[in-house]
Design a protein around this nucleic acid. Structure first.
Lengths: 217, 217
DNA sequence: AGTTTAAATCTACATCGTAGACAGAGGCGA
DNA sequence: TCGCCTCTGTCTACGATGTAGATTTAAACT
């Protein structure tokens, strides 16, 4: 070590900084959003957070909209659709897909609205759609009807995740819920006390899944 | 006119500029968002658009978040729940409520995400909730179960409106859908051609409405 | 009239998204 | 090997933006 004459100090490890990648930037952006919230996120902070120039991101994404598309893609990738029960009955497959989607989104409450506010058209997403429709068709469900079913499931699931994320994050920002005995303790407050904010989700899934059993007349 | 000595000129009509109101600001903000998009909206533009100082808005709303709460409230008011068929069967009432909510949101595609990303806790919204639960309870549905049902309906409806608004606004931003004959014309594209982006909505409502018929065991 | 108070205005600041010019490094044909 | 080209990252710059704070104006009340 001390024998090397020319450089006065050999840094212990040039901390492997090859180049930036779209994928890496997207996941880094997601991590930033997770920890500091969507409101505080900025392109410059992302560049700085990964140890590059604040403007470096623009070499890989045209603008913030483009970056957020990448974040949505990263979220979809996290669902890991490959490990879904593709060989089981289609109803279970669809149900598990929705549960996974919900869990994934709720793991990133600050990023849910990024996912919810854009149509995800990534190849991975399209492939999954094709695979789903193919399976349902093989089980006798016409693709058009299957697509309608999945649109329902997806909109419900995303709407649910968004609602849950938003109430969890915004908790405390507004008035507390009235407790029993308060003049505002109405039927709604009473019912809210008798439920959890999310104990309707699986029932909703079941309802949609069963409502689509019989094909359109 | 000319006899009045003290003011040199009497303006023909002081164009009725009394003071700003929270409500007026909220609807003006909604109008601005409608015409120029949420992205281009700013607090200063709102102040200027209503003919006041750019900073005037902050006298009535603490910050942008607060303003958007007001915008969501204005959207809810536009549903005009008072004219719903409160005397008909509850299923029809709930269905019409969802349809109205969807139509209202889709009339403001740029503002849907403002509505979707906050829990609306306005008095008007709470009153509606109480009225709904009361009606359902009178029809034999336990309030907790009714609340679960309405959460499903609401999340589905908002999720749907958001999805539709987002695809309509973003149309053209990305690759066109592959046409028949293209190598990418897969089962998904085929099914998409056989459906409209929203012809599943009413079926979804029906499914949820029927799935909740039998109370939890 | 004088005083209190709310509403509106003005100034100021840090930050943001993004455009555009510039720099170094690696590849590649000559 | 040389010169060139392209790709990535850097730097500077500009016009907004959200919001804090001091200041003015006008209305309301005593």
């Amino acid at each position: 070590m001390t024998a090397d004459p020319s450089p006065p100090v050999r840094l212990p490890e040039p901390p492997t900084r090859p180049t930036l990648t779209r994928e890496y930037l997207a996941t880094a952006a997601l991590a930033l959003i997770d920890t500091h919230g969507l409101r505080k996120f900025s392109m410059r902070k992302l560049g700085a957070a990964v140890g590059f120039d604040p403007m470096a991101v623009y070499r890989h994404y045209a603008d913030q909209e483009d970056l957020f598309d990448g974040v949505a893609e990263a979220l979809f990738a996290e669902i890991d659709v490959g490990t879904l029960p593709w060989d089981g009955p289609w109803r279970r497959l669809a149900r598990d897909y929705c549960l996974r989607l919900r869990d994934t989104l709720l793991r990133h409450p600050h990023a849910v609205q990024v996912f919810a506010t854009r149509p995800v058209r990534s190849p991975a997403s399209i492939d999954t759609g094709v695979k789903m429709l193919t399976k349902l068709r093989d089980d006798g469900i016409p693709p058009a009807q299957a697509l309608r079913l999945f649109r329902c499931l997806r909109e419900f699931t995303v709407g649910h995740a968004l609602a849950i994320a938003v109430t969890r994050l915004g908790a405390g920002r507004r008035s507390r819920r009235p407790g029993p005995g308060s003049p505002d303790y109405n039927l709604l407050a009473e019912a809210a006390d008798a439920t959890t904010p999310d104990d309707h989700f699986e029932a909703g899934l079941t309802a949609i899944l069963h409502g689509f059993e019989q094909p359109a007349p």
